[in-house]
């Protein structure tokens, strides 16, 4: 099976600082992969390069055979870690906006998810609580039928109920042809839904393995293992 994502010696430097250092890995379709690491480990940088928000310094990244660019953006769905939409926009505006630009945007799905949250389409983003805004951002990202989903800290800073909703939504939208790459530093909360884990530390990839395999080998949760690996 052709991998959905391939990184070969991917490096990003800012002057002397190496945000990403010779990162190589492959992800097959139909996997939920956790990109785990402390703040500043390079997780966001990696996702931004894959999403086409940053240009790499050296190395190669290929998503379904193409380098990040205009073409990949049509089948990669990216959820940034910051709010990036105009908050005066109504939910209906956002749905129309996304359908206009993304051919793979499923507006019915988005509307249904919003309805399940009890949101009226006339509500403006700024009238919603922060937690609700984050859910809306997630709905927009997951309503696309993309081949690769890149979620940057989707559960950071949300209450447990919202976190459960987010993880549920990710599982519901799982497809065998697509893969999801979730970056987070809150490993314990997310490890239950992961297939594989990638550990990043100071820009370097220090581990990439299936999650159950790690548990079997190390007799620890991924969270505990990570802390151990990180300390060394």
């Amino acid at each position: 099976m052709t991998p959905i994502l391939t990184c070969e010696h991917l490096t990003k430097t800012y002057g002397v600082f190496r945000a990403l250092d010779d990162v190589s890995f492959t992800i097959e379709p139909g996997k939920i992969v956790g990109l785990l690491g402390e703040n500043g480990a390079g997780k966001s940088t990696l996702l931004k390069i894959l999403a086409g928000m940053l240009t790499k310094t050296s190395g190669r990244a290929q998503i379904d055979g193409n380098e990040p660019g205009v073409l990949t953006k049509s089948y990669v769905s990216y959820l940034p870690d910051k709010s990036y939409l105009n908050d005066w926009m109504k939910l209906s505006d956002l749905f129309t906006l996304f359908s206009g630009f993304f051919a793979d945007f499923d507006i019915q799905k988005a509307k249904e998810m919003a309805k399940n949250l009890g949101l009226s389409e006339k509500t403006r983003l700024k009238a919603m609580s922060k937690g609700m805004q984050e859910k809306v951002h997630l709905i927009l990202t997951m309503s696309r039928h993309a081949k690769l989903y890149l979620l940057d800290e989707p559960i950071g800073g949300v209450d447990p109920a919202a976190r459960d909703y987010i993880l549920d939504t990710i599982l519901t939208n799982f497809s065998e042809d697509a893969s999801i790459l979730i970056s987070t530093h809150m490993i314990a909360d997310v490890e239950q839904i992961l297939d594989e884990a990638i550990f990043l530390k100071q820009g370097k990839l220090i581990l990439h393995a299936p999650v159950d395999e790690l548990r079997e080998t190390h007799h620890q949760s991924v969270d505990a293992l990570f802390r151990e690996v990180y300390r060394s």
């Binding site: 996997k31 549920d168 599982l171 519901t172 799982f174 239950q192 839904i193 992961l194 297939d195 159950d212």
Partner: peptide
Amino acid sequence: AKEAGVNPNT
């Protein structure tokens, strides 16, 4: 998988 809250592959 959704009900259990786990990865479908698992």
